[in-house]
Design a protein around this nucleic acid. Sequence first.
DNA 1: AATGCCTATGTCAACGATGACATTGTACGC
DNA 2: GCGTACAATGTCATCGTTGACATAGGCATT
Lengths: 360, 360
Amino acid sequence: MSSDPLPKARRTGKATVHDVGRLAGVSGRTVSRVINGEPSISPGTLERVKAAMATLEFEPNMAARSLRSARSFSLCLLTAHISNFYYAEVIRGLSRACSARDRRLIIQECSIQQAMRAPAGLLKSLNTDGCVLLPPLCDAAPLLDALDDVGLSYVRIAPAADPGRSPAVFSDDEAGVRDLVRHLWDLGHRRFGHIAGPPGHYATLARSRSFTASLLEAGAEPADIAEVGMRSVDDSPEESRRLGRTLAYAGGLALDSLLARPRPPTAIFAFSDELAIGAVARAQHLGLSVPGDIAIAGFDDSDIGAMIHPALTTIRPPLAKMMDEAVDRLVAGSAGRPIFRHPVELRVGPSTDPRFHPEP
Amino acid sequence: MSSDPLPKARRTGKATVHDVGRLAGVSGRTVSRVINGEPSISPGTLERVKAAMATLEFEPNMAARSLRSARSFSLCLLTAHISNFYYAEVIRGLSRACSARDRRLIIQECSIQQAMRAPAGLLKSLNTDGCVLLPPLCDAAPLLDALDDVGLSYVRIAPAADPGRSPAVFSDDEAGVRDLVRHLWDLGHRRFGHIAGPPGHYATLARSRSFTASLLEAGAEPADIAEVGMRSVDDSPEESRRLGRTLAYAGGLALDSLLARPRPPTAIFAFSDELAIGAVARAQHLGLSVPGDIAIAGFDDSDIGAMIHPALTTIRPPLAKMMDEAVDRLVAGSAGRPIFRHPVELRVGPSTDPRFHPEP
DNA sequence: AATGCCTATGTCAACGATGACATTGTACGC
DNA sequence: GCGTACAATGTCATCGTTGACATAGGCATT
């Protein structure tokens, strides 16, 4: 029998730090240091270890890493409802940001109620280093408490108006809405309508307040600023899903009630592209021309808004950058980080601007 | 000093199998058996252990489980491009199916090229028990080889026409297209157009072939069946993303070329809702009434198709069920499982059926 | 009664990386 | 020339669970 300590038969074919170390002429501990980018590795050693890792196609065993270091190297998107409208961009952004930092991205759909019912269970079992919370969960103080309790770090995605505690990544929705108001005003509109978002969300508040404030500032008559809400959104996934299917209809209904006013608006700003699309479809159904008879704008810059006829005027939050910041906060920590309001971009399209599509 | 073996100070506040065992009066090993649902636990023991787990809010340490048992308890959605159109439903379905089986869902965006360039790296580092491969990767034999090489199990999502090797979850696209053809034929249409999907995907082939075959069977003149493709889709995420933004425009261009034919079609079937939406928007831009002048149908039953005006006639694959089967195959294995073609559902809407929306 | 078999449970070590701590070597200051 | 400091690396035990194997008791079979 060889006295040379050959690698023991392992269940997985994978190389371990010790295999790499043996090949590079160092201990496994040193290989570990290289993996973790610890300082005080001599350049020569670094080189040899890296070469050995490449030769053996070494990939660190995440389970062992997690077990020993009590980190999971994964982040979680925790959200009440995965919709079609901007989640693709959110998930894409998170996925890339995670890849870039060598983290896994876990998706967990979970209503506040679920999270509350079994916070210990669900939140602990997530087994993750941190969570990204998307708008539907933004104002959920109890959930944040539960997360604090189990010691999970998190980042909320929120509009700048959000006075909430705790780390958050902000978009400057207010500024975007101001730009939109200027655009509509410059087109000559004087009577305005707003289709508000789901109640209880800071984004709903932020966009609505900014719309009204900007209009007043521009010189609009208070009587010519109308706002209609949509019916309350239950956060259970089933209900949200059902509503996801009908949110556009809610936009249509809201349009109806705006048009029923004595002095109906000529320009409408909807909380989201989804509501705006419903409003556009409803207007078309009523035989109205958009934007000829009524201008309609949304928020999100969803792919879909760009595909309908007429393409929506909308406001684009830089989701990719925001997700990048979110992941960075979770990985690197938020300590001492200044609040940054990610600027949003007004994207003018034919749904408000007649110059885009000459009527046939 | 107490001789009672109190729980040692642990880094995390969490209870371990031993803590639970002590409380329940059994060994940690038995607790482990309960966790894993192993047989041959006496009912009394089972009861006490479960009670102890509840009392201590015990959650098994995933890292330790993974390390010891060489499983990761997580599944991965591996896809080239996360789009807005049906990914929400796919991810929702996977997320729930995973939750139900106590698995984590990891999302990995990854082009074939990326996967090929560093298969060892990327695929190994995924650290997952199995992968769900979505259409853009369906025909990627090299990727499947790479997955086989690293011993990762996987399930493809595919149309039934796909002759590919290996486990897959099938939807019966052909049957759905046949139903659609019957619907269009019954409405009196006799000249047809098809907007084909991205080249090289089995779904493109399946839907296109079934459309033509069903029409011929119904008695259509071969000269009155037109098909136009869309330009080739590169699978790099950047390119896909860019195309994601413009796929609807591709639908519009395709419509133009169908309308330019000597005997233009009166009914059009697009490979996807996304292409169909572009075609509808283009038709409306040209001043055509949908479905008055031209009927347009899609595929996917995306939320968005239901929101535009007119709402799309489309074909609904039961994605939630399919994702459930996919997860089940990965968790429980595919051995001896018969192929099941998930039936799809024709959903008729006003984009083909004039009875839905009386012209104003 | 001895044998075998099965059920229910326990003991022990090991999965692979890393925290805590130890050790060597080298440079620097006085 | 000796102490101190720090850089570079090694040793060892450990994270929490489970695979491999052992054991104790019960029942049936011969």
